Computed example of a mutant assay.
Amino acid sequence: MPVRVAESSAPSQVSGTNSGHTSSPAYTLLSVGQAFSGTQNVSSLQKEEAWRVNVRIQGCDLEHGYLCGTMEALNVPMADTPVVTFWEGEIVDTKNYTFYTGKWEASPEDDKRHWTKFPSFTPLLSQVENDGGKSLDLSNYPYIFMRWKEQYFVNVGTDCGLTIAGFYYVCFSCSDGSINGFYYDPNSRYLYFFLVFYIFVN
């Protein structure tokens, strides 16, 4: 989260149950109530920072490729209290969402630049370049790709010094339940500012 204030959007409805098709063991780890914890690392030309992060899934609709939850950042240098945000996610299932974002000021080049940071994406690159990955069958792929977009601050105001202007490119490992993510903020691309976090199942 670079130090730049951005407008937050209004709260969205949160579903309390899973809906859609029957969950596989991997998707069970993304079910409502599942908690993750780990570290968020911030790197730029000026500084290196890291703080602890807790994530909890609050809603999941696999049929529509949707999930949502909260993210709690602890020990943030510029904040006097843990910062909690509500986020909504898109599951790249090639039916509801593809690897191309098509919004949030992310170009296809931005998408490829961030997805290719994940080694697990490499086998899919040529097909994504061909048709956005629409012809891929990811139902049995050992990784689940998502985008997480923070929508609003839960416990602090927009003057807290942090921004939610960007979004996360996320890769979930079905084998060990770990989550890796890279943050993209269109306002910070020229500062070479990015976030990466590693969250593991409790």
Rank of each mutant, 00 (worst) to 15 (best):
K95S: 13
P142V: 01
K134S: 03
Y169E: 01
Q127P: 05
D111Q: 14
G133Q: 00
M78T: 07
M146R: 05
G69R: 04
K103W: 15
P82N: 10
G89F: 13
Q151L: 02
A106E: 11
E88I: 02
A50S: 14
F86C: 08
Y141W: 01
G133S: 03
A79S: 08
F145G: 11
I57T: 07
V84P: 05
K117H: 08
T94E: 12
V83F: 10
Y152Q: 14
V154P: 00
W148R: 09
T85H: 05
L125A: 13
C60I: 10
V53H: 03
E109K: 15
T163R: 15
G33M: 03
V32R: 03
C171I: 08
T28S: 14
T81V: 13
M146P: 06
E105P: 02
I57A: 07
F172R: 00
L29K: 14
D61P: 03
D80R: 05
V84G: 10
S37D: 13
F118T: 08
T28D: 12
E88M: 01
C68V: 00
F121S: 09
Q127F: 06
L45G: 07
C60A: 14
D111N: 15
E48P: 00
K103H: 15
K134A: 01
F145Y: 12
C160I: 12
E109V: 15
A73G: 11
R52E: 12
S44D: 05
L162I: 12
Q151P: 00
P142H: 01
A35E: 15
G65M: 11
P77C: 01
P77W: 01
L74Q: 09
S120D: 15
P77I: 00
D61C: 12
M146A: 10
L30A: 01
F167P: 07
D159Y: 09
K112F: 14
T116K: 02
K149F: 03
S44Y: 02
E63R: 06
P82M: 10
V83M: 12
G157E: 13
D137I: 01
V53I: 13
K103Y: 15
Y97K: 01
S120L: 11
T39H: 11
I57V: 14
D61M: 11
V32Q: 04
Q58W: 06
L62N: 10
D137C: 03
N140D: 09
E105C: 07
I91K: 03
C160A: 08
F86A: 09
I91Y: 05
V84L: 13
N54W: 04
L30V: 02
F36Q: 03
